[in-house]
Design a binder for these strands. Structure first.
Lengths: 231, 231
DNA sequence: TCACCCAGAATATGATCAAATTTTTCAGTG
DNA sequence: CACTGAAAAATTTGATCATATTCTGGGTGA
């Protein structure tokens, strides 16, 4: 008999199966980015080992990475939670996003290929549908994807990395904003951006991106001061 | 009575002893920042557990954090190593550092207190001594400290975080630059910066910082193209 | 209100399994 | 008989888990 067979069928382990700690990281990252975790919510290792069915070590590693990303905060005692943004944080996010993301837009505008325009138009159409339907999760996902695809074409991995981290910081709060003000009122300058990309106008693309970033962040700022007033 | 004392000496365990994974992280971080690891050098978990006398789990967590910081790179197979900068990386580092660090200098210039000037002058004096003595490690440490202290006074933790990560990326290469060109030729605009801070001139402080950053990074750029030519 | 105790959660270790690299072996060929 | 090259064994390293230990926070009783 086969005493040797320790593990069962192994569930069709594909050749390049990402390690568990990577899967956990991606899962949590998406949850934070798309607002499935509320600002201030505590995050426990054991809670995640249960809900994700993973061991402690991979969960631990994923949490460390997310803390380093600024997506989670270590609270001095051994507690970890989803960060709550302060007004000062938002102000700095505005500056950093505005300068770096508009630069990425300028760079992307210099290597525009028709396939990029098509891809962005498709995403933006889906985004508009989500807005019309009041689908907050859809809005968050398509909005992220629009920016991510654009930045990918800027061929600037170092700067893109910085920006990805910034998005993780305000993801949870953005979800709250949508819940508060609805998706209808969310500004987007994607139409202007696409126009600039079609014209290969780097300056206009950068300007449109700066507008998009600032308007979005100002919604977050408004929500924060409203919360402060109600508290 | 102290029956409770389970372990004997415990080596003077102070009440707020940082966890092992934090100690490992700080140690590795310093080694990378101050050039004790060469670009391209492989980093193994088991090697670190031996050399640092720590268990696998804390070492693992520290490595994950450093990968997230951009201080180490994951090489697709399961290997981790110190990153080697490309010319494109350096170009992006220049843009990001220039915009963010000069903004930090501007902000710091608005809250200058005499104690800050004194502290920076002391560090800069030590920096000059290190340069005169050809002490590369001293140069790297004091130069970092000068910037870190200044940024601390900008009261902008989000942006400071971004910058700290950028420094981790070029730390190993900066060490190589110093070994290549010597400390004598390294530019520094700290004198102009201090002058601007004393005068509370935010614009001048930002300008001096931009100069400092660009000149330092251009040394790295020069080294890279030289290496490429020799290869 | 304060000291103390306890449940629960986090930290850390070592063992075990899996994957990748390196070394070794062994034909086959010129 | 030396040399090339592929296949296979062996070693090294990474990934995961189960378990033991330590610490934090809250509740309890004085």
């Amino acid at each position: 008999m086969d005493l040797i067979k320790k593990k069962a069928p192994k569930a069709a382990k594909s050749p390049a199966d990402p390690p568990v700690h990577e899967q956990v990281y991606q899962t949590l990252r998406a949850q934070i980015l798309f607002g499935e975790m509320a600002p201030g919510q505590p995050v426990t290792i054991q809670g995640l080992t249960d809900s994700l069915g993973a061991g402690m070590t991979p969960v631990r590693e994923a949490i460390r990475r997310l803390i380093s990303d600024g997506a989670l905060v270590f609270q001095g005692n051994r507690r970890v939670s989803v960060p709550v943004l302060s007004a000062a944080d938002v102000e700095q996010l505005i500056f950093a996003r505005k300068t770096i993301e508009s630069e990425l837009a300028r760079r992307a505008a210099k290597h525009v290929r028709p396939s990029l325009i098509e891809e962005l138009e498709a995403i933006d159409a889906a985004l508009d549908s989500a807005i019309a339907a009041g689908d907050v999760t859809g809005y968050l996902r398509y909005n992220y994807r629009f920016h991510a695809v654009l930045y990918d074409h800027a061929n600037a991995p170092v700067m893109t990395d910085l920006v990805e981290r910034l998005w993780l910081r305000f993801g949870p709060s953005l979800r709250v904003v949508c819940g508060r003000f609805g998706t209808q009122n969310l500004p987007d300058r994607h139409k202007e951006l696409l126009q600039a990309l079609r014209a290969n106008d780097a300056g206009a693309a950068g300007e449109a991106m700066a507008q998009d970033v600032v308007q979005g962040m100002e919604m977050v700022e408004a929500m924060l001061s409203e919360q402060a007033a109600n508290a």
